[in-house]
Amino acid sequence: MLDQFDARLDADFAALPPERLRAVLSPLLPKGGFVADVESLRAFESDGLAAYRSLPACVVLPETVDEVRAVLAACSELGVPVVARGAGTGLSGGALPFPGSVLLSMAKFNKILEIDPRARIARVQPGVRNLAISEAVAAMGLFYAPDPSSQIACSIGGNVAENAGGVHCLKYGLTVHNILKLEVVTIDGELMTIGSEALDSAGFDLMALMTGSEGLLGIVTEVMVKLTPLPEVARVLLACFDDVEVAAGAVATIMPPGSCPPAWR
């Protein structure tokens, strides 16, 4: 099974004794922000792909961007791997702990920082649930368009890491089409702003590279999302078929109508 990592085929790091990790990381974190007892670690052994399980060396739960920066800089110095985790609803084992790694949970970053209905944007921390954004802006006639099936539970940080789509993405686009700006901490603990509130930025499109990078490039600590006006009406057709192949053939004939251009902005 693939939850067994292989030093030869995957990656190899010198193991650090747990007391060393505790001594270095614990002082950088708030009370209760460093977890290393096996019973507590079990809660983090898998994500939505529950068949795959593996234990990290420890779990850290920072509450501020400075704590994230300090933890990452320390891990980089120690040469210890870091696996980021949002809500843990991912279905590909992206948050599966690497043996001996520090599991970085972004669960405490759960605040909506700003909603600007006039500019149609919201600034949120990565641990905010996808659906919570739409709920918070519904009364303003707006919503956050990407709607993965797990939207009730999944976090926006995880959505950025996976470039999550959703049932309506044909019209409203994927996560990459619905975010404007990211605050990202690199493994060296450096804080970078990628993208801007303007619709494009100078230089390479680093937003495109970060979105969907599955926690391999940096840790997202803040996301500016675009909000979309709620449609006037939504109707659903249910078509029944007596033959699967006929249904499959019919699918290719359905096109977005000329009255309905893509609505990502």
Binding site: E162, N163, G165, C169, L170, L174, V176, D200, F204, D205, L206, A208, L209, T211, G212, S213, L216, L217
Partner: peptide, 21 residues
């Protein structure tokens, strides 16, 4: 295909990179 999250989005990175990459 529109829905494709395999690997980094290096294709989107090329848009606007002015041939530098």
């Amino acid at each position: 295909v529109f829905k494709n999250v395999a690997g980094f989005d290096a294709f989107r990175l090329m848009a606007g990179a002015q041939g530098s990459l």
